[in-house]
Design a protein around this nucleic acid. Structure first.
Lengths: 145, 145
DNA sequence: CACATTTCCTTAACATGTTAATTGTTGCGA
DNA sequence: TCGCAACAATTAACATGTTAAGGAAATGTG
């Protein structure tokens, strides 16, 4: 009894893309005036939240692949938002830290970003919002604990 | 009373990315042997489901931006999976149709793909699966009404 | 110590995402 | 009919996603 594929209108991968598009649109609008991209914003937010860390941890927490992070870190360094240093104990490792300029960029937009998040909560309802996050986490292979 | 941003560990955009990553991983594995990408697979699936259509509609249904679709259509044409023709009534429009080869590529993998979908349903539970799709649709700006 | 392996990171190559500019076509109003 | 706005599609330019290969440093093993 072979099942058919769901219609593309009811496809989980496509629904995930479209939802992401809807969520990112206002965030991209906010970021357009800063000159940084959505991924660069994500990296800065992780650094602002957890402080200095090595590249491996940063890639993990920002959900970025290593090659992407290499390029993004270089871009952020050129823009003066992060610094890169070698770990003296293990010279393979790189340590990344947010600068004052980077921290300011985050701080200046936290209120606006929080307001966008509130908008989605009110669209879905607080309860649905939490349910959605829980269900999404179930699909995340890296969230097994 | 300014609210703070949620921790990046509980961020909706990041959760969407990670969920998508988890969902796409087995699909990409399946596609790796076909030589086509996830987006190319999506375009072929839409064409297989709805039949011949113009590029604008195709872009909409596959959730792809126009510039991406231009490149993807050219790639699929070169691989012999679709044909492109001009609309005689409005020569600005382009009509795209799946070929027998393209249809076969879809048909040969429908069972496998359906099995992957079943896997996610059993991971979440049938009810949660439908709830998730509904919530994601609420975030899709193109799904109003 | 010598050597293979592992780990961290970078680079390369190609496809896609995203925004903006450009090229053809069509339609419409002066 | 002329001129121009609107539309469909392409192209360009840059950033990221993805996989594979490469390089340098650390680690394990005999």
């Amino acid at each position: 009894m072979s099942k058919n594929l769901p219609s593309t209108a009811r496809s989980l991968p496509i629904a995930l893309i479209r939802a992401r598009e809807g969520v990112m649109a206002p965030i991209r609008d906010m970021l357009s005036e800063t000159g940084i991209t959505e991924q660069q914003w994500r990296v800065l937010r992780v650094l602002a939240e957890y402080g200095v860390m090595d590249t491996k941890t940063l890639a993990d927490r920002s959900s970025l692949l290593f090659p992407s992070l290499t390029r993004i870190a270089a871009t952020l360094r050129d823009k003066g938002f992060v610094t890169q240093t070698r770990d003296d104990k293990d010279r393979r490792r790189q340590i990344i830290e947010i600068t004052a300029d980077g921290q300011r960029l985050i701080d200046d937009r936290t209120a606006h970003a929080a307001q966008i998040v509130e908008g989605f909560k009110s669209t879905l309802g607080e309860e649905n919002y939490e349910t959605l996050l829980d269900l999404l986490t179930l699909l995340d292979p890296g969230a097994q604990k």
